[in-house]
């Protein structure tokens, strides 16, 4: 072992003697690339920071036009109405139906995707034969990179018809249909993250379970899955974040009616679809314009919170492991 190290050292020093003439050039190019990489990193950081500042600034300016309670409900004739209708002659700015709409598509999508995604992940990384595993993994990656507009288009033209023949929903384009569409892109994501989490479980843990006489299924169910629990939860939360943030699928197949309902078979309007459909038309500097930015700010905050949860989970996952090893 030590001799090997020694010889490789010798080779390296020989090399550096050989290259000594070019040394000055090497240093300057190193510096140049270090500068390039560092400024790229700084620029990205700066852009994200400026983006955040702009979002807060433009979003909070909505309060120059309307009061915070207007974003929750408006009162007509003594009754509270929760409606989003900023282009009406009597504009209403309640974000409540939009948040409910977003959750009504994102939560069912996450539930469906959790069941199928975790199942797929467990099968691929624990039960499939190596050859099958490789091809399934490629297939899953392919699914994860499906353009959402293509998913939306297929659902709009083909799946919506099947769906309404099958369930006879209150409206043909609805939240449940959107949840199915979203699942198509979230299942692969959860499956792939579940696979990663399972593979990160140390081999010794499995061997310990086997040596105690547990079978394959028992080991996976009682040992490997709990050990990978945090990683899998992180994957599910990331999937939920994707479901909230996706725009194209819900814009195309949720129907975009701002009903305040809890029935997943009726049409809903999500936060993202509202921004996408309306930002093009508003004149800058109006209440409507800033209200759209405020919705963007809400989405941004949601994704920050979800990411913090994921970070905490992943930290516990990997941090705990390191501790166990160092002891």
């Amino acid at each position: 072992m030590k001799r090997d190290n020694g010889s490789s050292f010798a080779v390296e020093s020989e090399n550096s003697v050989f290259r000594s003439k070019k040394k000055s050039f090497r240093i300057s190019s190193d510096l140049f690339f270090a500068f390039l990489v560092r400024s790229a990193g700084l620029l990205t950081f700066l852009l994200v920071f400026l983006f955040f500042v702009l979002m807060i600034y433009q979003g909070l300016r909505v309060f120059e036009f309307i009061s915070p309670s207007d974003l929750l409900f408006s009162e007509t004739g003594g009754t509270r109405v929760y409606e989003w209708y900023p282009v009406s002659q009597d504009p209403r700015f309640s974000v409540v139906p939009l948040i409910v709409g977003t959750l009504l598509t994102a939560i069912p999508a996450t539930l469906i995707s959790t069941i199928f995604g975790v199942g797929t992940g467990v099968y691929i990384s624990e039960f499939a034969s190596p050859a099958l595993r490789r091809s399934l993994k490629n297939l899953i990656d392919l699914f994860a990179s499906l353009p959402t507009v293509a998913v939306g288009f297929i659902f709009l033209t083909v799946v919506a018809t099947f769906f309404s023949d099958l369930f006879n929903p209150a409206s043909r384009l609805n939240a449940a249909l959107s949840a199915l569409g979203l699942s198509l892109i979230i299942i692969p994501q959860i499956a792939s993250l579940t696979g990663d989490a399972l593979r990160a479980v140390p081999r010794e843990t499995r061997l310990a379970a086997y040596s105690l006489g547990a079978g394959k299924w028992r080991t996976v169910k009682d040992v490997v899955l709990p050990a990978a629990g945090n990683g899998i939860s992180a994957g599910i939360i990331l999937g939920f974040g994707r479901a909230i943030g996706d725009t194209m699928i819900v814009l195309m197949i949720s129907g975009n009616a701002d009903n305040l309902v809890l029935d997943p078979f009726s049409s809903v309007r999500t936060m993202t679809a509202t921004i996408a459909a309306e930002l093009g038309e508003v004149s800058p500097g109006t209440a409507h314009f800033h209200a759209l930015f405020f919705i963007g700010l809400l989405l941004f905050l949601m994704s920050i919170i979800l990411n913090l949860i994921v970070r905490a989970l992943v930290k516990r996952f990997t941090g705990g492991k390191k501790e166990a090893r160092s002891v």
Binding site: E83, Y85, S88, Q89, S171, L173, G255, N256, A257, D258, N259, S267, R269, A277
Partner: peptide, 9 residues
């Protein structure tokens, strides 16, 4: 206003 239940395409 159009009814709230209008699907917007």
């Amino acid at each position: 206003d159009f009814a709230r239940s209008t699907h917007v395409l």
